[in-house]
């Protein structure tokens, strides 16, 4: 196994890049298990994975703050423009512009504020822009869901997406897990098998045990 890692590093991969890459199958499996075994409805698979990576860049506190900002900006745009005839992408584009203004506004407010938001690593001004951009992508998923489902259902999915993203972020922060993956690449074929098995899984999801408890009680 070491040989594979060494070969990759010799060929230009950095250890950090490799570690981030190795977490991708873990996060994908996490979303898969959450969806079909637990029953958590996330905004697809891309959104929770992207958010997990984004939170790694921004830190969880700033990450959640920016996420809240993005959702507020998106919802406001959607609400303000709901009566105006407009194409879908134009609407999202306006939401992105608003998000940008909002983030700049929050950073400036933080700068001039006597009490500044900081974490161990950095303050809000030094948050990597890539992290913010990744979180801003949530606007698209939010609107798409809101277009086809009720607000309650959309918010429920958002909460579930954030829950998975935070679990993913926690996993990525475990250095022991990262080192373990580095040294035990045999885990990945197992993940493949696990995902394949979940793909065939027909049993009840954990949430359905709660959802149908009244039916369960009524069956004699």
């Amino acid at each position: 196994m070491d040989n594979i890692i060494n070969t990759l590093i010799d060929n230009g991969f950095t250890a950090d890049t490799l570690q981030l890459l190795l977490f991708l199958p873990i996060l994908a499996t996490l979303v898969n298990v959450s969806r079909y075994v637990v029953g958590l409805k996330t905004y697809g698979i891309y959104a929770p994975i992207t958010l997990s990576y984004a939170y790694l860049f921004t830190g969880i506190r700033f990450g959640l703050l920016i996420t809240t900002g993005v959702i507020i900006a998106t919802f406001t745009t959607f609400y303000l423009l709901r009566k105006i005839r407009m194409h879908y992408i134009s609407r999202i584009s306006i939401a992105y512009i608003l998000i940008t203004f909002l983030v700049i506004g929050v950073v400036m407010a933080n700068e001039i504020s006597p009490v500044q938001l900081t974490t161990d690593n950095h303050n809000l001004n030094t948050v990597p822009p890539l992290g913010i951009v990744l979180i801003a992508g949530l606007a698209d998923f939010f609107i798409k869901k809101f277009n086809t489902k009720s607000l309650n259902s959309t918010i429920l999915s958002l909460v579930e997406t954030l829950t998975i993203a935070m679990i993913g972020w926690s996993l990525m922060r475990l250095t022991e897990l990262g080192n373990f993956l580095f040294e035990n690449l045999w885990v990945f074929p197992l993940l493949l098998i696990l995902n394949f098995y979940i793909g065939q899984y027909r049993g009840l999801q954990l949430k359905e045990y709660f959802r149908f408890r009244k039916v369960f009680n009524a069956i004699r």
């Binding site: 029953g39 027909r202 999801q205």
Partner: peptide, 11 residues
């Protein structure tokens, strides 16, 4: 086992 009588989304 009564849960086996219930149809979930997966199935």
């Amino acid at each position: 086992r009564k849960y086996n009588e219930i149809l979930g989304m997966n199935r």
